[in-house]
Simulated assay, not measured.
Amino acid sequence: MFHIIRPSIPDRRLLAIGLSLCVGAAAAADLDPKAISIKLPDQIKWVANPSGSETAVLVGDPSKPGLYVVLNKWKAHHNSKPHAHPHDRFITVLSGTWWVGTGSDYNPDDLKPVPAGSFVTHYGNEVHYDGAKDEDTILQIVGMGPATSTPAPKK
């Protein structure tokens, strides 16, 4: 005679989680690299900028003509000065609150908050400034290169 040992409910949950992780890992190993490319967060290379931000290029080359997609991380308490870009840029706020202003007169007290989940269009050749106040903010920026920036003329 033999006895069947039934695992407790917490043990069964752990077993189910472990099995699903194994199945998930096996399925991920079978992905065709010609069909899909995945970069996990620890594989995204961030580069520090003098402005107090960091950039990670996901697609394309912002310094050359053509489509690009970048992540931009504004560090807390850093803003840009008034500037313009030659092409429209399409921005999604992924985390934090982004602060934006328009015009050549830089006034950080006039910055308006843009919360996570928002979508913003910066129109080409129009002057703006932006950044982060009390928290880091991550943006996804999509545009056509070259993604140059021209400081606004001083008034």
Rank of each mutant, 00 (worst) to 15 (best):
H83P: 07
A28M: 08
H77K: 06
V70L: 04
S80V: 01
L31E: 10
H85V: 13
K81P: 04
D109F: 00
S37P: 06
D134C: 01
T55P: 06
S104A: 15
P50N: 11
D109Q: 05
L58I: 06
A35N: 15
V57F: 08
K133F: 01
G101L: 01
E126Q: 13
V120F: 12
V59L: 14
P65C: 05
L94H: 08
P82A: 02
G96F: 02
K81L: 14
D42N: 11
Y68T: 04
L71C: 03
V57Q: 10
P33N: 02
S53V: 02
Y123N: 10
G101P: 05
P115A: 08
V57D: 04
P115G: 07
H85D: 06
L111T: 06
L31V: 15
A26S: 08
K75L: 07
A56S: 11
D109K: 03
Y129L: 00
D32R: 04
P50K: 12
S104C: 12
G24F: 07
V69W: 14
P113W: 00
A28F: 13
N107Y: 01
D110E: 07
G60F: 06
V100R: 06
K75N: 08
P115M: 03
L40F: 15
N49R: 11
L71W: 11
D130N: 09
N72G: 11
A132Y: 00
A27F: 08
L94K: 12
Q43D: 09
D32C: 03
A76V: 05
N72D: 11
A35G: 15
K81N: 09
S80D: 06
G131V: 00
W74R: 02
L67A: 15
L40E: 07
A26V: 04
I36P: 06
T121P: 05
A76F: 01
R89D: 13
A35D: 14
H128S: 03
G60K: 04
K75S: 11
D61F: 07
G124K: 02
T121G: 05
K81M: 14
A84K: 15
Y106Q: 01
P86E: 09
V47T: 14
V47H: 13
A35F: 12
G66M: 04
W99S: 00
H78T: 00
D105W: 05
T97N: 02
G117T: 05
T121D: 04
A132F: 00
L31T: 13
H83Y: 05
K39D: 15
V57A: 10
F119T: 12
N79I: 10
V69L: 11
W46F: 10
H128A: 09
K112Q: 14
N125E: 12
N49S: 14
D88A: 05
L67W: 07
G131K: 00
S95I: 03
V23W: 07
V127E: 07
K34C: 10
G103R: 02
V93K: 01
A29T: 09
P113E: 02
V57K: 03
T121H: 05
T102Q: 14
T92V: 09
I36L: 11
S53F: 02
K39R: 15
D134W: 00
V57R: 03
V69E: 07
D30C: 10
S53Y: 04
L111R: 01
H128V: 01
H83A: 06
H83N: 12
D61P: 01
Y123P: 13
P115I: 04
T102W: 09
P33A: 15
W99Y: 03
V93H: 03
E54V: 09
P82W: 04
E126I: 06
T121M: 12
K112M: 03
P33H: 05
